[in-house]
């Protein structure tokens, strides 16, 4: 990339971060509106959903972070194999994160785990997290998820069989684990939530893949009929738990669930559940080789 293109690419990255932090994608807003609609008038569940929708509107209007916990900054990227200088690209991404922090789109949110020091840049080992793969196409696909701490804390990983949950190594056992995770989370993950779930893999790839499920649109359909069925059933059953928005009680406990499966070694059977709060900040853009945003993915 030439200097002028680098500048454009950098500006596009800052814009991706701004939009992600301050606006929820339409498919998420629609799911939240639908959740609000099913709660009964006069309940604290309806009240909470009303505050949530107001908050979405104000944040967008003021271009201010939806939630002050702007979360872990997780990039999922594809870049043109031909002509991309990987080191230059990641350098620009890190610079964009620091700039977005200065502009207030991200809170100073990254702490040295040993010393507890926060240098205010959101940069450090693993911060931001960049998952990048080359591809044959001639444009960049830059997707970003901001994952808050409260909901990340209620994520869970199960190793089947699990005797506490009574879960064996089959889809029934998987479902029990997912519902258990929702019940354990109660309102602590700022529900109503959305789950990304991965069956199989090792512990690390399982959790990573469960986060990648959060890149899917709320209204997409799982190509695997067995998993599509599981996704629908989990949402329906979780919403019968009565936990409701913020754990106030109510009908909307989950807005959606996305499940995928990875191969595993015969000895292991993991179910990894990532819980995403209602402040489901995900965005992404197609960025041309010239560094310009061509279209938004969500």
């Amino acid at each position: 990339m030439k200097a002028a293109q680098q500048k454009k690419f950098f500006d596009s990255l800052v814009e991706v971060i701004r939009k992600t932090s301050t606006e929820l994608p339409d498919d998420v807003v629609r799911a939240i509106d639908a959740g609000k609609a099913v709660e009964s008038e006069g309940t604290s569940a309806k009240y909470a959903m009303g505050i949530i929708t107001d908050n979405i509107g104000i944040a967008k209007k003021k271009s201010q972070p939806l939630c002050q916990d702007t979360g872990s900054v997780l990039f999922f990227i594809h870049y043109p194999a031909k002509g991309t200088d990987y080191d230059a690209m990641t350098k620009l991404i890190r610079k964009a994160v620091a700039t977005a922090t200065k502009k207030g789109y991200l809170r100073q949110n990254s702490v040295d785990s040993i010393t507890g020091k926060n240098d205010g840049t959101n940069l450090g080992p693993g911060a931001p997290t960049i998952h990048a793969e080359p591809w044959k196409k001639d444009f960049f696909d830059i997707r970003l998820v901001l994952k808050g701490g409260g909901c990340e804390n209620v994520g869970a990983q199960y190793s089947l069989p699990d005797s506490r949950v009574g879960a064996g190594r089959d889809l029934l056992g998987v479902k029990k684990c997912i519902l258990d995770a929702v019940q354990q989370a109660q309102g602590k993950g700022c529900g109503p939530g959305v789950l990304g779930v991965t069956i199989g893999g090792d512990r690390a790839t399982g959790y990573l893949n469960s986060k990648e499920q959060l890149l899917r649109k709320m209204d997409d359909k799982n190509p695997d009929p067995a998993l599509a069925k599981l996704e629908a059933e989990v949402v329906e059953e979780a919403n019968r738990l009565g936990i409701g928005p913020m754990g106030f009680g109510g009908k909307t406990t989950l807005l959606g669930t996305k499940v995928s499966a990875l191969n595993r070694v015969p000895a292991s059977y993991f179910v990894s559940v990532s819980y995403m709060c209602w402040a489901y900040r995900r965005q992404g853009a197609k960025i041309s080789a010239k560094g310009e945003i061509v279209k938004w993915w969500y």
């Binding site: 908050n55 104000i58 944040a59 003021k62 002050q68 916990d69 913020m246 709060c277 209602w278």
Partner: peptide, 8 residues
Amino acid sequence: HAVGGAAQ
């Protein structure tokens, strides 16, 4: 209980 995430 305030609504978590409703910073604005």
